[in-house]
């Protein structure tokens, strides 16, 4: 199996990803500074989720790794999401 061969990611890819992450960071700072009240929270968290997905996929090589790592990562994210939903179903309807 050629699965064990390492994919060498070019420097350029990492530099472009950093640029993208910095753009997303400044967007979330800008959005929260101009007081969009409720929406600011949602937008900031969506941007944070997007940033972490990019870090996981490129910096942490999930995109180039074997499927098993992706499956495990998605499972963990689903577990945390499920606990958040359950917790707020509890607190929201007390």
């Amino acid at each position: 199996m050629s699965d064990t061969t390492h994919h060498i990611v070019p420097y350029r890819t990492y530099a472009l990803i950093l640029l993208l992450l910095l753009v997303l960071t400044s967007t979330s700072v800008a959005v929260t500074q101009i007081e969009l009240t409720r929406w600011a929270t949602i937008v900031a968290l969506l941007l944070a989720s997007t940033k972490s997905a990019i870090v996981l996929a490129i910096f942490m090589h999930l995109k180039f790794d074997q499927t098993v790592y992706k499956v495990m990562a998605i499972f963990v994210v689903l577990v945390i999401t499920a606990v958040i939903i359950l917790t707020f179903l509890d607190y929201g309807f007390r």
Binding site: S28, V29, T32, A40, T41, A44, L45, L47, A48, V55
Partner: peptide
């Protein structure tokens, strides 16, 4: 990435 918006931005 999550600590930053939760404590500083929101």
């Amino acid at each position: 990435i999550f600590l930053f918006p939760l404590f500083y931005l929101i």
